[in-house]
Structures are given as structure tokens and as C-alpha cells.
């Protein structure tokens, strides 16, 4: 993947608000859907149990949010299991960026490795944003990673992201695999200095 294609400066599109704190990865993708050897097909199963219990009233089922590309959540989104199936399912449903009050650490790392920016905003700003989206579901919003803000209608809210992650999106280097592998000699040097690497067992 070339760096040019990987650069993420901004994401614009319609948004979907998903209200609630501590939405864990078991709810995002229940464990029974992890019985697979590829990530294909997870898009249809995202939030499967929550959606079936709300019989059509879950934001991911509501007609006005179909085709949304930015997911706006609350506190501690993605807590629990390390399953990348969770952000993969969200991405396969069509989401390209997330805005929330906070994200669980491993979920955040998975999104970064997949090239999906997750930014945080203050609780009251998020509520304003979620309310606005509910009132204007057909309108596009913009997450701008250079200005570090989300713009909607005539308003905008400031957002945050770790500096390392932001640099990776803006520089197109969020897919770290190639960069890591390229450091073969330095990796061998680090390994050679670690006592346990040379122990005989």
C-alpha cells in the first residue's frame, strides 16, 4: 500500500449517533460470530444482539442512518475483548471514522492499525453533536485531522487524538507493518541484547 493512498487528512460523510457508555466488544460483535477464519461477512452481524432486541430501533437499523460513515459514541467505547472483529464489523458496515468521549485502549490500537481514525471530544460537545445529527441525519459532517475539529452545520467542536496516531494518519503510515519489517537489523540488535533471547531453553 503506497503512502499517498494511506494518508487520512479528513473524513466527510453522514453520521450515526450511538448513545451509551461502556459499549463492549461482545455487544459490537457477539462471540459466536468469531467462529470464522476471515473477516468477511461481519458487517451484517455488527451489534447483532442489541439490534435484534431493539427490533428495528437500533441506530444501525434506522433508515435515516443507512449509509452513514462516521460513528459518534460516548464513553469507553469498545471495552473488553481484543477482538479486531469488532472494528472490522463496524468498518464493513460502512464506518470510516469514530468520534467519542473515550475509547478502550486495545480497540483504539486496532482501529489505528486498520486506518480508522478515532478522535475524542468533551462529553457536552458530543451530546451537542449527537443531538444535531439526530435532527439532521441527511447532512454530512467532517472530521478534520489537520484542524482537529468536527464540523457540522455552522458549528464545530474541537477533538483530540494521540500525537503518534495523528502523525500516522496524516503521514499515511498507519499501516506500520512495512516500516516495522524494514528495521530488520535494528530488531536483531535489540534481540541480541536481551539476556533471555540467548538462554539455552
Amino acid at each position: 500500500m503506497s503512502q499517498v493512498q494511506s494518508i487520512v487528512q479528513s473524513v466527510s460523510g453522514r453520521a450515526v449517533p450511538l448513545i451509551g457508555n461502556d459499549i463492549d466488544t461482545d455487544r459490537i460483535i457477539p462471540a459466536r460470530f468469531l467462529r470464522c477464519v476471515t473477516f468477511d461477512g461481519l458487517g451484517a452481524q455488527v451489534f447483532a444482539d442489541d439490534r435484534s432486541q431493539l427490533s428495528g430501533q437500533h441506530a444501525f437499523d434506522q433508515p435515516q442512518y443507512q449509509g452513514a460513515e462516521i460513528l459518534v459514541v460516548n464513553r469507553n467505547f469498545g471495552c473488553g475483548s481484543s477482538r479486531e472483529h469488532a472494528p472490522q464489523a463496524i468498518a464493513k458496515w460502512g464506518i470510516k471514522a469514530l468520534v467519542g468521549e473515550s475509547f478502550a485502549e486495545i480497540f483504539l490500537g486496532n482501529c489505528l492499525a486498520m486506518g480508522i481514525p478515532c478522535v475524542t471530544a468533551a462529553s457536552d460537545a458530543l451530546q451537542t453533536l449527537q443531538d444535531w445529527i439526530a435532527a439532521h441525519p441527511a447532512a454530512a459532517i467532517t472530521l478534520d485531522l489537520e484542524a482537529m475539529q468536527v464540523r457540522f452545520g455552522d458549528s464545530c467542536i474541537p477533538v483530540s487524538m494521540g500525537e503518534g496516531a495523528r502523525n500516522m494518519f496524516l503521514g499515511g503510515t498507519w499501516d506500520a507493518c512495512g516500516q516495522l519489517v524494514a528495521q530488520g537489523a535494528a530488531i536483531q540488535q535489540t534481540a541480541a541484547k536481551l539476556p533471555y533471547v540467548s538462554w539455552s531453553r
Binding site: F39, S82, R83, E84, H85, P87, Q88, I106, G109, N110, A113, M114, G162, G164, A165, M168, A176, C177, Q179, L180, V181, Q183, G184, I187, A191
Partner: peptide, 21 residues
């Protein structure tokens, strides 16, 4: 010791390293 996702499992397999803050 910490948990990682599948793309990071790929990174460890390929390079025995991870990009972390």
C-alpha cells in the same frame, strides 16, 4: 504483557515488534 488485535498479530509475526505509544 498486553492484548493486541489481529493486524498487530500480523505485525508481530512479520517483525517480532509492535508500533506503540
Amino acid at each position: 504483557a498486553f492484548g493486541i488485535g489481529t493486524s498487530q498479530v500480523r505485525d508481530v509475526l512479520a517483525s517480532q515488534t509492535l508500533a506503540l505509544s
